[in-house]
């Protein structure tokens, strides 16, 4: 026979467990933010680097002695690299994702939900080092031999990223297309729309908040991805002039140099500042999704 549990006691236990778990989540978020801020801000407070120089200068000479014009820690090339690679990845991935999601939900639900959707979801589970490795051993030589340049390039970087963020955008968009009331489609068809008109003019616009959310989260994922990108972009600290040029991103610069620079040095601190910048960017993306999208979804 079951032992009778004091209901008030078990209520209290459950409540404190849930509260404890919530507190851990909140405390760790706050401490991470504080930690990165302290480390990241010391570039500006302890070393007196101006935020303007940090953000808008492309002169990266962190180990040059003062007599020879250094040290300079402008990270514009890194920011530019991150932005260009992520944006191009989203530009390629978004239309592809819309097509996949429409196929899954509207065109061929049977095949789509049985084969295409699991296949796309599987993409999300592949470790990023595998993407990097495939990019390195297939994509980079392919670009070098058939298109030109070294192979390590903006092109290789955003191609790899666009596949990596595809599942994010597709799954959010699929959910939001599925959650549309059936009546939208019926109303569109009852007015004499073809299926394609109903999809293009009613269903996709109606799911646009899902599309924006997916694109922003995809962009955030692309922005934060380090490993796979680092393996295929060549990591040259210069602003690229063509998509066949090598490039460097914030994340790849951090992972490359974090282990090689003494703690507390200007160079090391600048890497923390870049980390802080990434953190602020992801806050920004989250804000866009939480407030921008929701407002846009309800009234126009």
């Amino acid at each position: 026979m079951l032992k009778s549990i004091n209901p008030a006691g078990s209520e209290l236990l459950g409540k404190s467990l849930a509260t404890g778990a919530a507190l851990i989540a909140i405390v760790s978020t706050i401490t991470i933010v504080i930690f990165i801020s302290i480390k990241g801000l010391s570039t500006f407070t302890a070393y007196g680097v101006s935020i303007k120089e940090f953000l808008f200068s492309a002169n990266w000479l962190p180990d040059r002695p003062p007599g020879e014009g250094g040290p300079q820690v402008g990270v514009l090339a890194f920011i530019f690299g991150s932005v260009i690679v992520s944006m191009l990845a989203v530009l390629l991935s978004a239309p592809l994702s819309v097509t996949c999601a429409v196929f899954i939900v509207e065109i061929a639900p049977f095949w789509g939900q049985r084969f295409l959707q699991p296949a796309i979801e599987l993409l999300a589970g592949i470790p990023s080092v595998v993407y990097g490795y495939i990019g390195l051993s297939v994509l980079v030589p392919f670009i070098r031999d058939n298109i030109g340049g070294l192979g390590f390039s903006v092109l290789a970087g955003f191609l790899v990223l666009s596949v990596m963020i595809l599942p994010t955008i597709v799954s959010i968009l699929t959910d939001s297309l599925k959650s549309l009331p059936r009546e939208y489609k019926e109303a569109a068809l009852a007015l004499g729309s073809t299926r394609w008109q109903a999809i293009r003019l009613v269903l996709i616009p109606a799911a646009r908040s899902g599309l924006v959310t997916g694109v922003v989260l995809g962009l955030a994922r692309a922005f934060g991805e380090a490993l796979a990108v680092q393996m295929v972009i060549g990591n040259t600290r210069k602003i690229p002039t063509s998509i066949l040029d090598p490039v460097i991103t914030l994340t790849s610069a951090i992972t490359m140099d974090m282990g090689n620079t003494p703690m507390g040095s200007l160079w090391n601190n600048t890497l923390w500042s870049m980390g802080l910048f990434l953190l602020l960017m992801s806050f920004f993306f989250i804000l866009v999704v939480r407030y921008g999208v929701r407002k846009g979804g309800i009234s126009r």
């Binding site: 009546e183 019926e186 009852a190 007015l191 004499g192 729309s193 009613v202 126009r300």
Partner: peptide, 21 residues
């Protein structure tokens, strides 16, 4: 069917305006 539905229109049980102006 497309032009048939243009001739025979339908109003549904639940009001279903599209989410647009």
């Amino acid at each position: 069917v497309v032009s048939l539905r243009k001739r025979i229109g339908m109003v549904f049980q639940r009001p279903n305006p599209f989410p647009m102006s």
